[in-house]
Design a protein around this nucleic acid. Structure first.
Length: 365
DNA sequence: CGCTTTTGACCTGCGC
DNA sequence: GCGCAGGTCAAAAGCG
């Protein structure tokens, strides 16, 4: 009986049943193997894993714009803090490719026949939806980065769902993962989450928790687990994009300024652009001090080189990251971030940049 | 009382 | 086909 009910439910809303994960990417060494393979980077048509993934999502081309870090720590004050729903809080230099123009090769083209035109139209719509998803995911990521001390993003992309036989259309869930240093597993990102499961993770003493956005019709999920290698590091994986403004939770509303409170209410597209109350950021930074007093870390994107992160004591022994260690997150250091606000602070090493340029050239051709 | 968390059972996909 | 691991469900317990 109950089994039947479950099956009915699953048939009705089973987005996982036909899912699969491909293209193992960017999982730092030392993390549980269970993390591997869950982060899909967008692949090119040849099916090879693309190193463009996250950079592309951010619309970062070869002319590297302002530092993401700079953005994250830029006070969200009007008018900059109140972008219209149609635009992004991310500077134009980082978003114009995605927002204003079709960023994918799926750009609409004129077809020769009416039926083909209809198909192409559908494909274009699908491509546009994907672009919008990317944009949403990007905003969500940016907002989360600004709300928390994100130390390293090591996986951004999509979970790829197995195509159904009759409907080969590829369905993708925007997904990104990042590490934060925190004593608490479940970081307050302004949204309300309900825990729906917890599982022991193989090769890790720490369980993985599963959360779902409590808002009806919002299917955003997130997984939270603690690194077995560095217990102070929390790995959070978001899946999907919120389809609603950020609810004003009791915790989040304390001290929230009116402009901040209205910030997230500007429609679905800007739903993630809710500035964290300043006191809360400070609080988090103060909480983080014990972790940072002996090491300086920079939120960086660990694009490809999981093997370079080998020291078990800290994921920030990556040579690339070491090179970029310049910032000490502290309540008084936000201005310091800005002083070094160049995107080169976080771009990939020269070799990787070269590869990225080559891939971009390939795409243009 | 309503919401959240806990937790064991169940389902699914994948590798062998 | 089987076993394993990840992911989800839902009843029960906990909490404010």
């Amino acid at each position: 009986m109950e089994k039947n009910k479950r099956e009915e439910k699953r048939e009705g809303s089973n987005s996982m049943a036909n899912s699969t994960f491909s293209d193992q990417v960017m999982v730092p060494a030392g993390f549980s193997t269970s993390l591997s393979g869950i982060y899909d980077m967008p692949c090119d048509e040849k099916g090879s894993s693309s190193s463009l993934g996250f950079m592309d999502m951010l619309g970062i081309g070869q002319d590297f714009g302002p530092s993401l870090f700079d953005l994250l720590h830029t006070p969200l004050t009007p008018p900059q803090a109140l972008p219209s729903p149609a635009t992004s809080a991310v500077p134009e230099s980082m978003t114009s490719e995605v927002v204003n123009t079709p960023a994918t090769p799926n750009s609409c083209s004129i077809s020769s026949s009416s039926t083909e035109a209809a198909n192409e139209e559908n494909q274009c719509k699908a491509a546009e939806e994907e672009d919008q998803d990317q944009e949403k995911a990007k905003k969500q990521f940016m907002q989360y980065c600004s709300n928390n001390e994100v130390l390293s993003c090591f996986g951004v992309g999509y979970r790829q769902l197995k195509p159904k036989k009759k409907n080969p259309k590829r369905q993708r869930e925007p997904r990104f993962a990042f590490m934060t240093k925190s004593e608490v597993d479940h970081l307050d990102d302004g949204y309300r989450w309900r825990k729906y499961g917890q599982k022991a993770v193989k090769n890790s003493p720490f369980p993985r928790s599963y959360y779902r956005c409590t808002t009806a019709a919002c299917g955003v999920k997130k997984r939270v687990e603690r690194s077995s290698d560095d217990p102070s590091t929390v790995v959070t994986t978001y899946e999907g994009t919120h389809t609603h403004p950020c609810p004003v939770t009791p915790r989040g509303s304390i001290g929230m300024q009116p402009e901040a409170a209205s910030f997230g209410g500007g429609g679905g597209g800007a739903s993630f652009l809710i500035p964290q109350p300043h006191y809360q950021v400070q609080q988090q930074q103060q909480q983080l001090q014990p972790y940072f007093h002996n090491q300086t870390v920079v939120p960086s994107f660990d694009f490809n080189s999981t093997t370079t992160i080998t020291n078990s004591s800290s994921p920030y022994t990556n040579p690339f990251l070491q090179q970029e260690r310049r910032f000490v997150p502290s309540p008084s250091s936000s201005t310091l971030f800005r002083d070094h606000g160049l995107l080169q602070d976080m771009v990939a090493p020269p070799q990787m940049r070269k590869e990225m340029k080559e891939e971009q050239l390939d795409q243009k051709v």
